[in-house]
Nucleic acid binder design. Structure first.
Lengths: 346, 346
DNA sequence: CTGAAAGCGCTAACAC
DNA sequence: GTGTTAGCGCTTTCAG
């Protein structure tokens, strides 16, 4: 038997009809014109209550589901907002996207998620695919885009928000924080705590690299130049943390402090340290980054850099909504900052 | 070529035009008809190479981006597949979705992700929103859907795949495994290892509950009925693991084995055990579930139940693609099974 | 407050 | 191989 029966006896009978219920079907049943049904759905305040009731009933009777392909085409408003992130597995971006998505949902928008990978392997193709859906706005991760991407993005003439980084010259709006300042702040913090023997386990992605440079140059200013670095590939995982610390220790790193480019790496480092019976933070102090929910409140031995991931999502959503509604005088650079969370004692 | 007089009056500037480049613009520049441009994009094998070249050039010159709202409306193929998952934060579903999405991308489809929450708080509204985009197929998590959802899903008359569970009577296709068998297998495994003092730290979601019942009833068959259970709310996190174990220990649970409903819980339990200086697995054996990448290979003290999350994603994608292409004789129930991974020694 | 007409940008179906 | 015609299902515009 066929899973998708062709519709048999149809009244409208046009050969290309898909068989699903349309605005017109609802309109006929309610005894009004299609446009009135459309108004009941989109602008109920412009329709008499009596009419609304009739139409609502017809909608329920028929099980009508609007076709937003048609609606979007006709109105040039797809009610779709695209978001591009590097990864969703074990990802610090998940929470941001969740809140971004929740905020937009309240305003009637849906989020189309695109995962670009580390590095953004098929970024251009992904962007084209996304733009072909005619989103009303776009959320981007980071500030590095290929020349081709920038061109396409600007040509789309829709509101754009770059996130998780900061820049004086965003494409449109930017919501994030300075990675170079994070690196510097962590360096100053560790120096202030008296650490002089300092190492890194860090991913090789663009933003982690900026933090690394900030970190190393700040340390250098304090005369600390011999900083062993274990580079791992994003997206990071626990095992890389373990092997990262192993490499440092095997390379002669004694006691001191380790700055990790993610909390999951920090936790891997912690696991390795524990299995080697190192005392934390006595012999080894560990700093993570950005995933405070994951680490700081659970493993009191880990300090970390807190990023307000919810704020990034919510502020990005609100900025885009304002832009969509035509607001022109909004802040284009929103720095959400960061905070060093100290959890060195049990 | 024939000209519509009323069109030639307004050169390009019809009042409703969105201003973006259309198939017609490309066609004019290439000196062909719009349908030929369409064919170059969708069925290049039906067009002469010479024409393809001309059109490709015109596409590049103009920076044309197809409008899939229009294309989908005209062809009744949106090239969109929807996926509904309970959560993406710290989620075991992320990897499945990633592979599902990758496989569909290769076939020219994009995935529209919907997050339903624990419990599926706005499931019906989410489903309606998704269906309004006219996806060509849908990926669902679990087998529990509201009556309203079932109706809508079936009315959509598109291929459906339920995942992460198993059932003899799927809506359409199902790719997963038996949670009750997982519970039973873990019980048998622990009994076989000689454990008699057994506890649980488990989430309250539907599938975890089924595993719990399988586990408890299998233990009961072995005469073990006094099993303390610490229930936590999904989605689970490390802290819940810590506090879950605390509750069990404070409630008088001595040494023995703990079955956790996720690996992240297991790791939280491990953290709490370590901070209490319990020897693992000597005094406390810990079993997790489903996130082997996260735990088993990293913390040799944790055993877990391996689920082939990649297979779920890939097989779900392939089943849907086969259905979309009209294949009718495919397996509707695909059991990917599970495997107990033993990691009790350091 | 409601409706008629005219597309949005694309593709199916059928010519040639 | 390529073009013409006629919509897909909705919303805009303008009229009443």
């Amino acid at each position: 038997m066929s899973q998708f029966p062709e519709k048999s006896a149809t009244v409208t009978g046009s050969s290309r009809s898909t068989g699903s219920i349309t605005l017109e079907d609802v309109a006929k049943l309610a005894g009004v014109s299609p446009i009135t049904v459309s108004r009941v759905i989109n602008y109920p305040e412009k329709v008499a209550q009596k009419t609304i009731d009739k139409v609502q009933q017809a909608i329920e009777r028929t099980g009508y589901v609007p076709n937003m392909l048609a609606g979007g085409l006709a109105s040039s408003r797809s009610m779709l907002v695209a978001a591009i992130v590097p990864s969703i597995e074990n990802s610090i971006f998940a929470e941001t996207i969740q809140h971004f998505s929740d905020r937009l949902w309240e305003a009637g928008y849906q989020v189309l998620l695109g995962v670009s990978g580390y590095p953004a392997i098929r970024e251009d193709a992904l962007l084209s695919a996304i733009l072909s859906r005619r989103p009303d706005a776009i959320f981007l991760t980071g500030i590095e885009h290929s020349a081709d991407s920038r061109r396409k993005l600007l040509a789309a003439k829709i509101p754009l928000v770059e996130t998780w980084d900061i820049s004086p010259s965003p494409l449109d709006i930017i919501v994030g924080f300075s990675h170079i300042k994070v690196g510097q702040a962590v360096a100053d913090y560790l120096i202030g705590k008296g650490y002089r023997n300092i190492g890194m386990v860090t991913a090789d992605d663009q933003r982690a690299a900026v933090r690394r440079h900030g970190f190393l140059s700040a340390l250098a200013r304090h005369g600390i130049t011999n900083v062993p670095v274990s580079l791992v590939q994003a997206p990071t995982n626990l095992r890389q943390g373990r092997s990262g610390l192993s490499k440092l220790l095997d390379g002669g790193f004694g006691s001191g402090a380790i700055f990790c480019s993610s909390d999951i790496l920090a936790q891997g480092v912690l696991a390795e340290a524990q299995s080697r019976k190192l005392s934390i933070p006595g012999e080894l102090a560990i700093m993570g980054f950005a995933d405070q929910k994951f680490a700081a409140h659970t493993f009191p031995t880990l300090s970390t850099v807190r990023i307000d991931r919810v704020a990034i999502g919510v502020k990005a959503a609100e900025a885009l909504l304002a832009r969509i509604q035509g607001q022109t005088d909004l802040e284009r650079v929103v720095d959400v900052g960061f905070e060093i969370i100290e959890r060195e004692t049990t």
